[in-house]
Design a protein around this nucleic acid. Structure first.
Lengths: 354, 354
DNA sequence: GTTAGCACTCAAACGAAGCGAGTGCTAACA
DNA sequence: TGTTAGCACTCGCTTCGTTTGAGTGCTAAC
């Protein structure tokens, strides 16, 4: 109490309490600590220290005659300085590393698919819900290729391939006066003009140029332009995907059906999720948001850990793990880092271009 | 008891009981029926009839001193012969008809997207969970167009457009010896050969023909073939999508967190869902499965109503509604039929090709 | 500074009492 | 013969008091 900095014994006790609480899910008393983590102290001493820790705001009591549980401040300290990352705990799941690797070798799939797989693995590993926000957000992406494909009379498919091999397409109806041959010319011109450019570079002038160089009346070109715009919109839209929502119900803090429902409903609101996750990701790397640090009300007794992934400078997306405040932070962080390795290894092979 | 066929009065009473139970969610007693649905009978008489109905297996009692609730047999009769479809109850949501219509006019999107929207509307309308199984299942689909598109050196995009305007694509790595020009020839040949054919008609002979007519070494052609196969696999895979899972939690029968969890977990098992929904759809039109009529154990106190949709002979998919056995069958069926109109209208316009 | 001991607190578990919705049965009535 | 009034009975739910026990805070001794 003399100092508001924690001495190392208090730290040790706090760590023990949080470790135990994460494992047992029950408020932890002084006796438990004295017995289980023998640090040569009696329960009475621990009790005194606990009282101090509570006064300093690291612990709270659900009610007078119960044990202590960590406060948000306690968790924060734990995450920042106390917990030890257990790398060994994850090893047995190396079958799953096989999973992700083999999937990537099998064929070059869209990155977002790989991310999806990664998020599933994270969710399985941690037993919490994973939230995947893939795609570049509003960031700038180059167009690798753009094509218009005749489907049948009066219909064409517009498709663009982006930097990260994401494919976007949009089916439009076109004037039946446009022959496949004309379409081909349009396709070639568009490709020439747009390929290598950023999505946001495309403007009406460029479209005008296509009209001129192909000789196709501008009116007839219009639906095609609309298709291109639709593709761009799709590409700009970040994709949101959640994995393992039902896993949340396994944790006792969601026994209250009302809470569970609030959170599950939130998981359907993709825009909110995307904002939340991307905001975190801006800091880059790993971010932990504990309890009320989350801006979303319904998550006030949840924590979210997010990790952003990018390989070779290309941003793949962000995976967030959502669980109760009493989550196993160590396990979650290990899982997220673990998947990072998997993703990078899998993608490192790609440039070989065998 | 003399006859094991129900006289019309028993029917009326049974209907009243089930109607009331669906609305109130509580076991219903004889007094309630006598008062609320005045059919000129005293509670005592109703009581006698109820005893008969119970003996015949249409009703059960949760415990001696409670009211009656319908048995599965009761629900079955109700669905088959007693309930009246309330079409008026749905009308106020005609804003949502606007929704679906405008979305369809805005641009020709993949059918599966439209179905997705439809399933969302059904879920919102009914407050239960909607399960969408789109795509043709194992059924035979014609290929409308097939294209290979160069993306960059060493990479090509294979894409096929199917009967129902579903677009499938697959990115493959190809030998860098294949020039865009060669790829173009391959593309034209493949399109010529495969367009108009069913997915399962494609065989190795046809691929051999492509190799011959384009002069591309068969070894180099191999990755492309793999891409095509991948596309086909994707097309064969029925897509499963669930909408509004969290809505289930609003209903009292899912207050038991264990039950809720079982069902929510089931909703992640796409293969099981697809099997279940498609099996129903085989009968065509509307199918109601009550309680243990569902083969899946976890759904033994749920009901599933499925409707299959096809327009112009093209099968779009099936939407299933999952809710507690005590679901508002009438509302669910109305909603499914209602969306049918929306889908058909929206698609009826398409052939106009404006 | 640490520890043993003791009085105290309070949520959770248990159980008895009362309530009340609903039933089945019997007897009277049309 | 079908309907109804009346009444005793059942039984799940709620309420409320009691007990239990894990855990605390405090004090006094080491």
């Amino acid at each position: 109490m003399a100092n508001n900095e924690l001495d190392s014994r208090k730290m040790l006790i706090l760590k023990a309490i949080i470790d135990d609480y994460i494992e047992s899910k029950e408020p932890v008393g002084s006796r438990t600590i004295a017995k289980k983590y023998d640090m040569g102290l009696s329960s009475a001493t621990i009790r005194n220290e606990m009282a101090d820790l509570e006064e300093m705001g690291y612990l709270t009591q659900p009610h007078t005659s119960a044990g202590r549980i960590p406060s948000e401040k306690g968790y924060r300290l734990y995450v920042d300085r106390l917990m030890n990352l257990k790398e060994q705990g994850i090893e047995p799941t190396s079958e799953e590393l096989g999973d992700i690797k083999s999937h990537m070798q099998h064929k070059i799939s869209e990155l977002s698919e790989q991310m999806r797989m990664a998020s599933e693995i994270v969710s399985r590993l941690t037993d919490y819900t994973a939230i995947l926000v893939s795609g570049s957000g509003r960031r700038s992406m180059k167009i690798k290729a753009l094509q218009t494909v005749p489907v049948e009379t009066g219909k064409a498919l517009i498709l663009i391939v982006l930097d990260d091999d994401t494919v976007k397409n949009s089916l439009v109806s076109i004037d039946s006066a446009i022959t496949p041959e004309m379409l081909m010319r349009i396709s070639v011109q568009c490709n020439l003009l747009f390929a290598g450019h950023r999505v946001e570079d495309i403007n009406l002038d460029m479209i005008e140029m296509v009209a001129e160089s192909t000789g196709v009346p501008r009116m007839l070109l219009y639906p095609i332009v609309e298709g291109i715009v639709a593709c761009i919109r799709k590409a700009e839209n970040t994709e949101v995907h959640t994995e393992g929502a039902s896993r949340l119900l396994a944790h006792p803090e969601f026994n209250d059906i009302g809470k569970a429902r609030n959170v599950l409903e939130l998981l359907n609101k993709e825009d909110l999720l995307a904002d939340m996750i991307q905001e975190c990701s801006s800091a880059g790397g790993l971010v932990v948001r504990i309890g009320s640090e989350n801006k979303i009300q319904d998550l006030n007794d949840c924590s979210v850990v997010t990790a952003s992934y990018s390989v070779n400078g290309v941003e793949l997306g962000t995976i967030g793990v959502l669980g109760p405040t009493r989550m196993d932070y160590s396990k979650v962080i290990s899982a997220l880092e673990y998947v990072r390795k998997g993703l990078e290894e899998g993608l490192g092979k790609k440039p070989k271009a065998e």
